[in-house]
Simulated assay, not measured.
Amino acid sequence: MPARPAELLAGALAARAPGIAAQVHARITANIPTYDRVPRAEVQASVVQIVHDVCGVLRAGTVPEPGLIVQAEESSRARAKQGVPIHDIMHAFRFSMGAIRDALAAAAAEVGLDAADTVGLLTLAWSYSDAYTGNVVAVYRQSDIENALDQARRAQQFLLGLLDGTLTGAELTLAATALVLDPETPHHALRARPAGTDPGPLLRELQRQAARHRGVAVLAAIGAQVAGVVPFRPEATGEADLVALGPAVPLERLDGSFRTAQAVLTASTTLGLGGVRALEDLSWRAAAAHAGEVNGLLRERYLAPLADQGDFGVLVREAVTVYLAQDRSVPRAARALPVHPNTLRYRLRRFEDLTGCSLDSTETIVEVSFALGITARTP
């Protein structure tokens, strides 16, 4: 009994599988750079399996449901883990099907199939191509979600290890490298507090900023705050959001940068500051914010006498604050308030009378700056 046309064509195609695989690998290598990370043997084995699948479809005369094409799922998951984007996976598959189409046409002539049988079997092969493509898209989308969740989990574990001090030394460097942080680029530790209770909007804004910069950043929501490692200084995200930065350091010193970022976060919170803040922005205020006993002393020396004056005391404190902020320029301070310069001078004299200090004294200026900038904001 003579063999069916489909059987003849499938047999001839199967015999060409090794040659098709070699041809497709050469085309992929020449045209798709991301496949450099995929071993040659894996690419060729995948192509051979596609050829065998097409042979099975020709023999059966039907195309399986997309979810039943096992090779599509296994190959797509493997390429996703190797970092090959979906458009490159689809490009490579088109090379495979193009080579299979050419081989089918040559094999059809070789085994003597008529035009009707040839067209019908080629149409069946392309129906398999549609089913394969549908499975690849579904699998890649799921793999993309799984990879994103895994990346977020690893990022959170990495940041928690830095925050609690358990990730140090060689282990820190290894974990940072696994997250693709560039070991040649200094990174800032980041601690951020959103204006509200939801860290999501702040996290997404910082991620958008990271996407605009070169290099890799690691960011995650930790409780009601955001923690991260970034190779750039972020832009302000909103007046009430606070982003505290540690110094830019090599990866192995990130634990120290996180300690600084925490100190900046605490001091900035005490000072009622928002925006993006680093230690150099706070200067002496970072230490002063933690000086509890000195805060109490200066509160009694400079603020308590003003509080006893009621509304007038508020005006006096405002006058001194603006005077110091304007580098002790009476004309500029008067314009900023705004009041007449003589009114400002009167209030400054009353401050000196009430506190028993002189605003010409360097030590007084330091202490009053400390009191107005720090103590007034602390309990």
Rank of each mutant, 00 (worst) to 15 (best):
N342C: 01
E352T: 07
V314N: 07
Y346H: 14
A336S: 13
E352G: 07
R347M: 06
A304C: 02
L354P: 02
A376V: 02
D360G: 07
T321W: 09
Y346C: 05
G356S: 13
Y302A: 09
P338T: 09
F351S: 01
S358N: 01
L354H: 05
S329C: 08
E352K: 07
P331E: 15
R347K: 08
I374L: 08
F351Q: 08
T343G: 05
A307C: 06
V316K: 01
R328Y: 11
E300I: 07
F370T: 01
Y346F: 14
A304K: 10
F312Q: 15
S361Q: 12
A319V: 02
L298Y: 12
Q309F: 05
V322N: 08
F351E: 05
Y302R: 09
V322I: 15
R317S: 08
R332M: 11
D308H: 06
V316S: 06
A376R: 07
R347D: 04
R328N: 12
Y323I: 01
L348C: 12
P341Q: 10
A336G: 05
A336N: 13
G313P: 10
A319N: 06
N342S: 10
R301S: 09
I374V: 15
R301L: 14
A334K: 00
R328T: 15
R345A: 14
L303F: 04
T321K: 09
F312V: 15
L324N: 09
T378Q: 13
P305T: 08
S369T: 14
